[in-house]
Nucleic acid binder design. Structure first.
Lengths: 344, 344
DNA sequence: ACGTGGCATTGCAACGTTGCAAACTGGTGT
DNA sequence: ACACCAGTTTGCAACGTTGCAATGCCACGT
């Protein structure tokens, strides 16, 4: 049976309240008393009971991290940063997976209410900020990824449209003209995919390249398999694309695999750009050119938002931008290297 | 302010205790009363306060998952299974990262005591079962990975020695004779690495192949980079190895990348076998032959152990085996395809 | 000697829930 | 008519902590 405040108090010959003070506000306790209490704590191995503390204080110092799937490299890397940043604030992190299901997203968010989390970092798949805002009783929520309307929740994200345009421009600059967009999700209200498609179109329009809808490849999920399937479908077109802008690195890695199977050389025949800068893309052959969001910053900013929002529930929804950069690697090298078609 | 039992009780015109009964043991409440209470719960959006419940019951229905790093694909995939299996039991999962630091492992395990977790799934890096057992005040712990002594904690793992021997035998069967072991950790008490090395040696001995210590490559961590570094070091030997048994897929993927840089063909010049069966290894070029532990089963068995141990803290330490199989892919194909050296 | 102020310590109550055991209800058996 | 029983419902207390406000103590100034 673990020791409680009372056990420590008896041992140190002080009141329960004084022990509590030593634990929480040591500066108000006289040095002598403090030392005596600290030894008693040490001897008994006392640890505050978090349940009692949470009940009394009304805060648990626990936040929820709700993601589609923790085993997708992007979310795994993000989670690592979130856990580290949370720890720096003295918070612990509960992980929940929505498995990319809308109903489950709703259910988890509703459940969060009583689940003793002080706030939630939510990476939505199909829910929008509006919908989240309407669930009034829930604890503060910070959403990852852009959102169309500004509800009563914050959202923290890279400027997906700008980033996608940058990636596409990079491909255009190296002479590619038939650029596919892999990762479109027409049936879902997934704002991130929407923005990336918009950015892709911006860049095409800028360059005066026609936006060929046959090159928009929808996917169910964002796994390797979906990227591979997408590439195979593209290979069936009468004219092959000369580049793919994949909405995630995982899709790009899947497409890369399919290229190998199809006998297509990357980047010579097809250039690939991904998004997320996951570790695997740095070591693949060829390595993946990608849009790298500053994930550490993303996590830190999300927690900072949550922190403010926990202090003041009435805060209006905010829109926080996270820096990103294009990391040029082998799958879509810098323009100096023209595509094989131009070289011949 | 969220509704509590009292609010519901007032609304339904019953006592607090009856509402509690409806929530916890509906079968003892008369149907009429039950319906009235349920509507009140619905109307007020009542959710039990988990902190109060945990305080009163002495159980939080939260377990901790302590891993070196959640962003390593193996741990990410494992975590996904653990979270799903925990959810099926009505538990939530609290994630902590040790960053592969011994002191942090100890600190986190000690901290777990008061942290309101009912149990811990611990994937150790350098701590042994003996050490964990000695921390008496901690909640029940189930360790992932084999352990030398049987302390008072359970451990759930594949038979690493057997699995490693199988992987090595596969390489031997296809004619490889200079097989490197990548992932040795001599300075650490990492039992998993130890067992895999032992299995590798078993297979070599069996085949009458000398165990050349120059082919044991130590690594600091298990990242892609470490695998790539290992391969580069091996390439500096006077005689190149004709195969690598990498202790994790991530190391294998790193080695694969280094092979590309060194102009070595896989599997023609060098065959690769990994361990873990992470998703990325299924889509790399070439795909990675690997030892696949049944991760879903692993998670489920670990939780089952924890469950039993939570009911009976005095249970002796157990040793639970998880099934595994060798998945043959391109990086080390079946023996039918002899290595390039033999073919010439 | 006495009031004053600052510092250190304390007791009480409450957070929302559930274990326990008692109390109530209406119907049944004698 | 009365005791008894099963089926429902209830009140009280306690889990371990902390907010609040009050108390005790001591040295200082007048």
């Amino acid at each position: 049976m673990p020791a409680n405040l009372k056990d420590v108090a008896v041992r140190a010959g002080v009141s329960v309240r004084t022990v509590s003070n030593v634990v929480n506000t040591p500066e108000v306790v006289a040095a002598g008393t403090r030392d005596r209490v600290l030894s008693a704590i040490e001897e008994l191995g006392y640890r505050p009971n978090v349940a009692a503390r949470a009940l009394r204080r009304g805060r648990s110092e626990v936040i929820g991290l709700v993601v589609p799937e923790i085993d997708s490299p992007y979310f795994a890397e993000l989670a690592a940063h979130v856990v580290r940043a949370a720890e720096a604030r003295g918070w612990t992190v509960h992980i929940e997976q929505t498995d990319g299901s809308g109903p489950r997203e709703r259910q988890l968010l509703d459940g969060a209410r009583g689940q003793g989390v002080d706030g939630v970092i939510f990476s939505p798949w199909s829910m929008t900020a509006d919908e989240v805002s309407r669930r009034s009783a829930a604890p503060p929520v910070v959403m990852l990824g852009e959102q169309p309307g500004v509800g009563t929740v914050d959202h923290v994200a890279v400027d997906n449209r700008l980033a996608a345009a940058g990636a596409t421009r990079h491909l255009l600059a190296s002479g590619r003209r038939r650029i596919a967009a892999v990762g479109v999700q027409p049936h879902l209200r997934n704002e991130t995919a929407r923005q990336r498609l918009a950015g892709y179109r911006d860049a095409l329009a800028e360059a005066g390249v026609a936006d060929d809808e046959r090159l928009h490849v929808p996917v169910e999920r964002l796994h390797h398999q979906d990227g591979a399937d997408a590439m195979r479908r593209l290979a069936e077109l009468e004219a092959l694309p000369d580049a793919l802008f994949c909405f995630t690195d995982q899709l790009a890695l899947g497409a890369l695999r399919a290229c190998a199977d199809l006998g297509l050389r990357v980047p010579d025949d097809v250039a690939l750009v991904g998004f997320d800068d996951i570790e695997a893309g740095r070591y693949s052959v060829p390595s993946i050119t990608t849009v790298a969001p500053d994930k550490e910053r993303l996590a830190e900013l999300a927690l900072a938002c949550l922190d403010e929002r926990m202090r003041d529930h009435a805060l209006p929804g905010r829109d926080v931008a996270v820096p990103h950069r294009l990391v040029v690697r082998e799958s879509a090298p810098a323009p100096a290297t023209p595509p094989a078609s131009a070289a011949r």
